[in-house]
Simulated assay, not measured.
Amino acid sequence: MLLLHLDMTKSVMRALYGKSTSLNLSSRKIKVVPTCISRLTNLKILLLNNNSISSLPAELLALQHSLTKLYLYSNRITAVPPDVIRGLQNLVVLNLNHNQIQRLPPEIKSLSRLRHLSVLDNKLEEVPVELGHLTSLTEINLTSNNLSWLPQQLYQCKELTKLHVARNKLTCLPEGIGALAKLQVLDVAGNKLSVFPVEFHLLALGELYYEGNRFVRCEPMASVRDAQVLTLKELAARFVLREDRYRSSRVHMMLPHYPTLTALLADGNCCALCLDPFLATWVECVRFISLKKDMKMRSSKTIPVRALLCSYKCLNTDGHSYYAVATR
């Protein structure tokens, strides 16, 4: 252990006097990061992987103006201190793979230059909505955690080209995924998904991994349903949403004066078939998309993509390819 400590100290001193911009302290059985590391004010790349570190050391704050790449994978980190992560605003790469982290703090939004975030094989149970502030992100890897949902704010990261969320407990992907126009690789294998979100087929994906989920299958069956009765609120909302489409209508001109109503109607959607608007009552459907034909991918398989119809009347019209989702 003494030899390892001396070797580590020598590495730090060489970096200090040589004004090195990178330092490799991986596989040194480090439990506590040496305080002298704070003197390496020119350091851009720091490798602390394969050690026994239990938390992001406060000494990193002294490197906040220079450090761009930080590798802390394969340690024993259980927590990410908010004050430390807040101070590393120049990071471009952050690798926290193979630790025991349960939570990323909201202060992660301070990493405005971050492009690669990897927290593979941890114990994350949720992703902070503040991750949506990291609009420079091009790759996120959250594989092998305990995530049951993803925040819709994730879609604000419009530079994303790779999103890995395999082997979690996701039951759905949030709507709005079409905003990720640059997404090339999506890995959702080993979750509990039943359908892909609306507009999924519009993505220009190059690679899609979706094995090991619980997708609905196309098995036509007889159904029994009650007559569809819309509430007064739904009827009124549909009327307002329709009228709001016309700029010359009185509804369109008056709506800005009622911010509460405007906020409520912001959750409205439109029928995939007739394009009429609706608020909170719809027929849950799927459309089976050919990866090869509809998404220009190599695979010839089909996937279920969620679709919302405004009424059973639309569902019962002929000539469309939508299927109502049955519950058994």
Results as ranks from 00 to 15, higher is better:
residue 209 Y to A: 08
residue 170 L to S: 11
residue 202 L to H: 14
residue 173 L to S: 11
residue 163 L to I: 04
residue 209 Y to L: 14
residue 177 I to H: 04
residue 178 G to T: 11
residue 192 K to M: 13
residue 170 L to V: 09
residue 199 E to V: 08
residue 198 V to C: 13
residue 174 P to G: 10
residue 187 D to K: 00
residue 192 K to L: 14
residue 188 V to G: 04
residue 206 G to W: 08
residue 206 G to A: 07
residue 185 V to Q: 06
residue 197 P to V: 05
residue 178 G to I: 12
residue 163 L to S: 03
residue 155 Y to V: 01
residue 200 F to K: 09
residue 168 N to S: 05
residue 161 T to L: 13
residue 169 K to P: 11
residue 159 E to I: 02
residue 203 L to S: 06
residue 172 C to T: 10
residue 175 E to Y: 08
residue 171 T to M: 12
residue 205 L to S: 07
residue 182 K to R: 13
residue 185 V to P: 02
residue 201 H to D: 14
residue 155 Y to A: 00
residue 208 L to W: 10
residue 183 L to T: 04
residue 166 A to M: 03
residue 192 K to W: 15
residue 193 L to W: 06
residue 163 L to M: 03
residue 171 T to D: 14
residue 193 L to I: 11
residue 204 A to E: 12
residue 207 E to D: 11
residue 174 P to Y: 11
residue 183 L to R: 01
residue 174 P to H: 07
residue 165 V to E: 00
residue 200 F to E: 15
residue 156 Q to F: 11
residue 186 L to F: 03
residue 191 N to L: 05
residue 166 A to P: 08
residue 198 V to A: 14
residue 189 A to I: 05
residue 201 H to N: 13
residue 175 E to F: 00
residue 203 L to I: 09
residue 174 P to D: 13
residue 170 L to E: 14
residue 164 H to F: 12
residue 169 K to N: 13
residue 178 G to W: 06
residue 199 E to F: 03
residue 188 V to A: 01
residue 155 Y to N: 05
residue 206 G to E: 11
residue 196 F to V: 04
residue 190 G to Q: 09
residue 195 V to Y: 06
residue 159 E to R: 12
residue 185 V to A: 02
residue 168 N to C: 07
residue 181 A to N: 09
residue 154 L to K: 03
residue 173 L to V: 06
residue 191 N to I: 06
residue 194 S to A: 12
residue 190 G to A: 08
residue 203 L to F: 11
residue 193 L to Y: 01
residue 157 C to T: 06
residue 186 L to G: 02
residue 199 E to H: 13
residue 191 N to D: 08
residue 171 T to E: 15
residue 193 L to E: 05
residue 197 P to S: 04
residue 187 D to N: 01
residue 197 P to M: 05
residue 163 L to T: 01
residue 158 K to L: 07
residue 182 K to M: 06
residue 198 V to H: 06
residue 154 L to V: 02
residue 194 S to E: 14
residue 177 I to M: 11
residue 198 V to W: 00
residue 199 E to P: 08
residue 192 K to H: 15
residue 194 S to W: 00
residue 166 A to C: 08
residue 192 K to I: 04
residue 202 L to D: 05
residue 183 L to E: 00
residue 177 I to K: 03
residue 180 L to D: 02
residue 190 G to V: 07
residue 155 Y to R: 02
residue 164 H to S: 09
residue 157 C to Q: 04
residue 188 V to D: 00
residue 187 D to V: 03
residue 189 A to V: 08
residue 204 A to T: 13
residue 178 G to C: 12
residue 179 A to Y: 15
residue 202 L to G: 05
residue 191 N to P: 11
residue 204 A to V: 10
residue 169 K to L: 14
residue 202 L to E: 08
residue 177 I to S: 03
residue 164 H to P: 03
residue 173 L to W: 04
residue 184 Q to I: 00
residue 162 K to D: 04
residue 182 K to V: 03
residue 204 A to D: 10
residue 187 D to G: 00
residue 189 A to H: 03
residue 201 H to S: 14
residue 205 L to K: 05
residue 185 V to K: 06
residue 171 T to L: 09
residue 178 G to R: 15
residue 173 L to P: 01
residue 166 A to H: 05
residue 204 A to H: 15
residue 183 L to G: 01
